[in-house]
Design a protein around this nucleic acid. Structure first.
Lengths: 335, 335
DNA sequence: TTGTAGGCGTTATCAC
DNA sequence: GTGATAACGCCTACAA
């Protein structure tokens, strides 16, 4: 079922059929309709591989994300998909599970697949080899969620956001605040958020060294729970992301504490689900779908203009604080 | 950067280079190494479009899912990705947002993209035009989560699962049980689960007509909450999926009820997050990643054998009941 | 073991 | 306005 068959059935040349699909204006309305009829009668669909081979453009955007099990990236991907579809691009998403070798493999696969451009969330822009290969190959790309002076990035100001959040907690009366983070080495976001935490604590005249790093999901709840049983325990946990916040609330429950009465918990990301939880998650919300949309627009703009994207194109979107119900002033007794 | 360039640089023919990448056994170890060195020096990556065009196989599996915002499908996709990668296939996921026209568009796109086969979760196998087109085109496919006698499906027995669940609630002492469902017309799963509910209720000698259909996410919590304020209110809500269960718990909170003390809530799907919630979600768990993996294996097997897949290949995986904390015997007073 | 050449389905250049 | 044809990068008989 090729353009040949359609041409024969319509009694025209393949060139005409091709024109009907690509530059309909350059063909007589009569023949155009005739060809269209023949095509749909045969159920003809232009072959993407052949077209890509010939034109050297795939109209495919490669998307590299850590995981879709974290709704943050699923939400972002929805934004990407929507914007890409609108612009006439298909997307090819791959996940890396925060592993560098998969980051590399994904980039490889996408280059082989003739992706026109790529949107990626890398573990760390400063050290990513995959990213370096991308630059070498002059492949247009945009980083999402990452933040780095040498690359075009779409993100929020994580550091500032967490610093503000800590200030807010301090003003509520919290003094013993612990940062709960995933593996710091695994992502620049985690590091930025920690910097924000330390800065915020110091600005409030508090001890910013209380850090609980929980690298593995399986053991996270238990480890957090252990910390909460110590004396004196923190009155607030600042979690590096929403999933950790949810696990912290569970950990509190296991330790016999009630959130927010005995312990305040805050998250980071603003996953939609957090709004439906009880207690509703207090968190820093990022415009996840917008980050995706924005990345696509930036990339497509560069694709159209032919100008290589630079760090100058970076966009910092606004974050917000969702009040929620998991965070309040500390109990006077505990305090 | 084509096979040509590598051939020149290595001082061999393009055929030899091709063989090095496809049938390394048919080339001298010496020249093989030589060519490999030349290739990686140039950063050569075989062009997937050209290869697909020539071989008529893309080694790409098309995946059609309703949405990735529901972790069920994200979990399934992870399973698919893992199995596909293991088997040397890439995946191309597209989401339909439960809309039929997008289902159609997705199938179109994947056919144009020369997908070797497809795994899809359709809204309803009995009525899906996209599915019919697929069969016409003799495209190998497997349905996931769907259940239909005329198609190869990988799923759990939803109806039986819900019937069992209702029996369990009844034996705990619940008499007024309401089914909370998403839009029934939007998916065959919702319909199966309702059938299971009705069957279970009748088997327990209870009234199985209490159904609350909440088609829109935005208004779901409010609507459920309204129902819970009526007298007499249900002592248990059987929710058609985990996201609805989470919203039901929120709705109970808004209505001044505590789960599970004043109201039992059960879900369906077994999303991982449910285990971290407080109260931990009582739910019917499906092996989501396995459903994905299994679908891939079935499809690839068919791809290898050349035999078209039939309904005979359908697989029903085991579900389980997670006890959780959101479900208990009804309060004697309310009872 | 290695090389030559034809063709996969499409688009784009050139005639007509 | 329409048709013939070369070329995109690759794989694979077939020949050497």
């Amino acid at each position: 079922m090729s353009i040949q068959d359609v041409a024969v059935k319509a009694g025209v040349s393949v060139a005409t059929v091709s024109r009907v699909f690509n530059t309909p204006g350059k063909v007589t309305p009569a023949t155009r309709e005739h060809v269209q009829k023949a095509a749909s009668a045969l159920g003809y669909v232009p072959n993407a591989s052949a077209r890509t081979l010939r034109t050297q453009r795939s109209r495919v955007l490669g998307i590299v994300l850590p995981t879709l099990l974290n709704p943050v990236f699923a939400e972002c991907l929805e934004g990407i998909a929507q914007a890409a579809t609108t612009a006439g691009y298909a997307i090819l998403p791959l996940t890396t599970d925060y592993r560098l070798e998969l980051e590399d493999r994904a980039v490889n696969l996408l280059m082989a697949g003739n992706a026109d451009g790529m949107i990626l969330v890398v573990s760390n822009p400063a050290t990513s080899l995959a990213l370096a290969r991308l630059c070498n190959a002059r492949m247009p790309y945009v980083l999402a969620y990452n933040q780095h002076p040498d690359h075009p990035c779409v993100s929020v100001d994580s550091e500032q956001a967490v610093a503000d959040l800590v200030a807010r907690l301090a003003s509520l009366g919290h003094r013993r605040i612990t940062l709960v983070s995933g593996q710091l080495a695994a992502s620049d976001r985690a590091q930025q958020r920690r910097r924000g935490f330390v800065r915020g604590m110091e600005a409030a005249g508090l001890d910013g060294s209380s850090l609980l790093e929980v690298p593995f999901v399986q053991t996270a709840v238990q480890e957090i729970s252990d910390v909460l049983r110590r004396t004196p325990r923190p009155t607030a946990l600042v979690c590096s992301n929403d999933l950790l916040a949810i696990r912290s609330i569970r950990a509190a429950h296991l330790a016999g504490l009630s959130v927010p009465r005995d312990l305040s918990v805050t998250g980071f990301d603003g996953i939609a689900l957090g709004e439906d939880l009880t207690p509703m998650l207090s968190t820093i919300t990022q415009p996840n779908a917008d980050i995706g949309r924005c990345s696509v627009e930036l990339l497509i703009q560069a694709l159209a203009g032919g100008a290589p994207l630079t760090q100058a194109a970076s966009i910092c979107l606004a974050h917000a604080f969702r009040t929620g119900e998991s965070c309040t002033a500390p109990d006077a007794a505990t305090h």
